[in-house]
Amino acid sequence: MLTLRCPYCGVDADETDLHGEGQAHLKREGPGSSDEDFEDYLFMRENPKGVHFERWRHAYGCGKYFHAARCTSTLQVFGTYSAQTLEPPQDIKDKISGARPGWS
């Protein structure tokens, strides 16, 4: 069972309190983008074995979206952080580097 700390509530929320919302840090391709870019944005998702960044929603709690960095093979959680960001914060990157040197 996955337990993630909601960065807004500060509580350790059980997986059943949350709703998975897919891959984090997607760049939206809107009107004017090429068909290839739009297809990538809509359908193409990473499916890594290892470090992955995801969006989650604290559905039964505060209702806010947040991001989580975790390992898909060991389920180790490196940390959660605000969704109001374009890339993972440095402290999260440092934690991942500590546990998984050479990750990308």
Binding site: C9, V11, A13, T16, D17, Y60, G61
Partner: peptide
């Protein structure tokens, strides 16, 4: 104070 679920409901 905690918002969560009880059984199957919010």
């Amino acid at each position: 104070f905690r918002r969560t679920r009880l059984g199957q409901v919010a």
